[in-house]
Design a binder for these strands. Structure first.
Length: 493
DNA sequence: ATGTTC
């Protein structure tokens, strides 16, 4: 089994080892040259500032990023976003592009929660007008959207219906189940469906785990937040997105639940078994991979795309449940929620860089294409693709847009959140869920969650400072700040 | 992230 790391150096605390040699190659961009370790194929590029770099050295994420640079077929550099932290094999907040056709694809470079992502909806409501109803609103949302580990919902999909969701993503729900509208699809990355999906590549077990989980939040850092637009940094871009100070918005953060998790588990196991046959040697068993052109690579890619489509459909159904609540409480007109955009941060996609096709792994990294890209919705094409960077629970979230510079510096990617600075277990030792709940309520934030113990894992103290993380991506020029949103209420598992 | 060790 490939569940344990075989890299001997990851068994010692990160702090006891000398830091690798960093070279500042541009403002807020550091590189570790290939001379650092003989097995590196490309440099490791880390987006950081003098203030955030020490934090990145506190766990094994930098070493993991160096390990990623050894993958066969990797091009350019392995990139670490400013919210990077330790993950399974690859760091969370990591980007790696491998050249087609023989470069590898590695499930660890996408993560267990395939197409975990964020969607932002905006209402016509003024916070001032509904301030007294926020508690009731959050309560109703928590009743309508199931959350918590292992939780299923009222909807269940199997057989051909599930096949069409796995291959058609959010569009299958729009077309067959009257969940949302066709115009929603224009505001979803890749139109809400990745082309490479093949339902038959998804195991029966994965299908069973996912059957009743569409339209559910899950647990961990997944949440649904009612927010108010707090500050606008770029009037032009904010206006285009429909973000006006004082306006109420809803941020949904969820993924492909047990289905995506099982797809990752299935294929890590398969690849671990065939790596040697392809003559691939990696410094950490958790980097299990296979050439994208191999049967194992193709199977995983097809299953991963199908799980990603399940993720898009999940957020589509959650948004549908949220819209129902808003409509019931505020009426058809005032309660209308327009989808601004939906973007994932755990996928691998075939994209073109410098004229060559590459497989871009993004794990805890958000696609952030710049102005002019055909993959950006026409309505936003001149400002760049919207990107959402949620802070930790109860802290501000940022809306950004991608930049042209990002396509050369980070394969069109930026950070995905604040990023952990404390493990889940460490967080539980430091704070109790009860105390955290009191603190949030003291700041006027309504909170509904299934488990107090899990609440503690998501304490703001367990995360990096999102303001600093966003300042780094802005300084490095891989995203542009548009607006900040402040939480009014949180629903989580 | 996850029916939190098939």
């Amino acid at each position: 089994m490939a569940t344990r790391s075989t890299s001997s150096s990851t068994s010692e605390p990160a702090s006891t080892r000398p830091p690798p040699p960093f070279v500042e190659v541009a403002p807020s961009v550091y590189e570790i040259p290939t001379s650092y370790r003989s097995d590196m194929r490309v440099p490791a590029r880390i987006f950081a500032s003098p203030e955030t770099l020490p934090g990145l050295l506190a766990d094994h994420s930098v070493e993991q990023l160096v390990n990623v640079t050894t993958l066969p077929g990797i091009v350019g550099a392995a990139c670490g976003m400013p919210d990077m932290h330790e993950g399974y094999g690859f760091p969370v907040g990591g980007v790696a592009a491998t050249a087609l056709p023989d470069g590898v694809i590695s499930p660890g470079g996408i993560g267990f929660d395939i197409n975990c992502g964020v969607r932002l909806l905006v209402s016509n409501l003024e916070h001032k007008a509904i301030a007294a109803r926020v508690e009731g609103l959050v309560h109703e949302l928590s009743r309508s959207v199931p959350s918590g580990a292992g939780r299923g919902g009222r909807w269940s999909f199997a057989g051909k219906k599930l096949d069409r969701i796995l291959e058609g993503g959010a569009g299958a729900l729009v077309r067959e189940h009257e969940v949302g509208t066709a115009s929603d699809l224009e505001a979803i990355e890749s139109g809400g469906a990745l082309e490479g999906a093949d339902a038959s590549a998804v195991s029966e077990r994965a299908r069973q785990r996912g059957a009743d989980q569409l339209g559910t939040l899950g647990s961990g850092n997944h949440f649904l937040e009612v927010q108010v637009v707090d500050e606008v940094f770029d009037e032009g871009a904010a206006g285009r997105l429909g973000l006006v100070v004082g306006r109420v918005a809803v941020l949904v953060h969820s993924g492909s639940r047990g289905l995506g998790h099982q797809v990752c588990t299935d294929h890590v196991r398969l690849m671990d078994g065939v790596m040697q046959r392809y003559g691939i040697h990696v410094p950490d068993r958790q980097l299990a991979c296979a050439p994208l052109s191999s049967p194992e690579g193709q199977q995983y890619f097809a299953a991963m795309c199908a799980a990603a489509n399940f993720g898009f459909a999940n957020r589509q159904l959650i948004a549908h449940l949220v819209r129902d609540v808003f409509r019931r409480m505020f009426g058809e007109r005032d309660g209308f929620l327009r989808l601004i955009y939906d973007v994932g941060h755990n996928t691998a996609k075939i994209e073109k860089y410098e004229g060559k096709k590459v497989c871009v792994h993004r794990k805890g990294a958000t696609r952030a294409f710049g102005p002019g890209s055909r993959d950006v919705p026409a309505a936003y094409r001149d400002i760049g693709q919207p990107v959402f960077i949620p802070g930790s629970m109860g802290t501000s979230s940022f809306v950004c847009v991608g930049t042209e510079h990002g396509s050369e510096a980070s394969f069109g990617s930026t950070c995905h959140g604040a990023g952990r600075q404390m493990s889940r277990t460490a967080a539980k030792k430091k704070v109790t869920g009860q105390a955290l709940r009191k603190e949030l309520e003291g700041r006027g934030i309504v909170i509904r969650c299934a488990s107090n113990a899990e609440l503690a894992e998501e304490a703001p103290a367990a995360y990096k400072d999102v303001d600093r993380v966003v300042d780094v991506v802005a300084a490095a020029g891989i995203a542009r700040k548009v607006a900040r949103l402040r939480p009014l209420g949180v629903v989580k598992g």
